[in-house]
Design a binder for these strands. Sequence first.
DNA 1: TATTGTTATACTCTATAACTATA
DNA 2: TATAGTTATAGAGTATAACAATA
Lengths: 137, 137
Amino acid sequence: MPPDRLVFLLKRAQVRVSDLAEPGLAALGVDGREFAVLSVFAAAPEPLSQRDAAALLMIDRTTMVALVDGLERRGLVERRGHPADRRKNTLVLTAEGTAVLERADAVAAEAEAQFLAPLGPDRADEFRSALQLLRPY
Amino acid sequence: MPPDRLVFLLKRAQVRVSDLAEPGLAALGVDGREFAVLSVFAAAPEPLSQRDAAALLMIDRTTMVALVDGLERRGLVERRGHPADRRKNTLVLTAEGTAVLERADAVAAEAEAQFLAPLGPDRADEFRSALQLLRPY
DNA sequence: TATTGTTATACTCTATAACTATA
DNA sequence: TATAGTTATAGAGTATAACAATA
């Protein structure tokens, strides 16, 4: 019933996809943000500092500390010294971290497919690519 | 740098549009959620209870109480008895509330236009209508 | 002097539980 | 007995400030 303002529609869509993915992620022992942290560090072409990752995920660096603490405690990542700057940490995924990330990615892909189903394949592809184009990195 | 998972892209898009709209809304003295509350009550064809509105906006009914308190204190809405059930409240926008809503709507429309600009008119229209189709009321 | 990670602390936001009035 | 609104309280999530190590 909220009017068709894009802000509201985007919010709902985001919550919807998250809700679809959440049970599957929970079964893997991670939540959406932890999945995101694993993703950024795994996908980065060069070593990322915690601060870099925090900026990409739009969360505070102190929040990142807590997130990394949790992931490290569960053996999914390891803190490593950053090659270029000894003040920085970078993170490497353990074998288990990589495995969890792969399965989490499959969960997310399935949630997306469910969410986009009403559009049909062509419109779904267009929606995806539009969203990628709009990404304001 | 987070991979192209829809959850991440949607989250970013939502934050982006909110950020674009936020200064304009702040100038009107409301935040995104207050704007949403004004919108649902104004757009509802039949009187809405606070609980109905809370469900539509996916927030708790106790949170709705606080939101409505703030809006009422500033003279943007008035609580009224619900015609059909005396336990319920419905909200009516004051003249000022209506004026604020109209201007907030213009602010949001401008933010959307800015956000969608990279797509060009046709793809922007398609993006909008896809999101409307996906809306899971 | 500035920046990274960290800790401790405060604050905001939201949900939970309990109360009242209505149904 | 259940529901709507309300209040008070607790909890989660997040940011702010300060510190050590490094640049």
